[in-house]
């Protein structure tokens, strides 16, 4: 399935989580540095959160 991390598309296997999208986007070091993940409605998400096709998440 395809999701978007900071508007960049990433392709994942069903069952994969926020952390997998961040790994593919190369953003795990940013998380380790204290940035957080938000969904398109502005809610913070946990790294083990599930994703839905087409979902947009932001790291900031």
């Amino acid at each position: 399935m395809r999701v978007y991390v900071n508007q960049k598309p990433v392709d994942l296997v069903p069952g994969m989580q926020v952390k997998h999208a961040l790994i593919q986007a190369g953003l795990m070091t940013a998380i380790a540095a204290g940035l957080k993940v938000y969904d398109e409605w502005g809610h913070e998400m946990g790294l083990d959160g599930s994703l839905a096709p087409g979902m947009k998440i932001l790291v900031k």
């Binding site: 926020v18 969904d39 809610h43 998400m45 946990g46 959160g49 599930s50 994703l51 839905a52």
Partner: peptide
């Protein structure tokens, strides 16, 4: 649940 979302105020 499932998305591990921190919904601070109900939507």
């Amino acid at each position: 649940g499932h998305s591990h979302t921190k919904v601070l105020q109900p939507e």
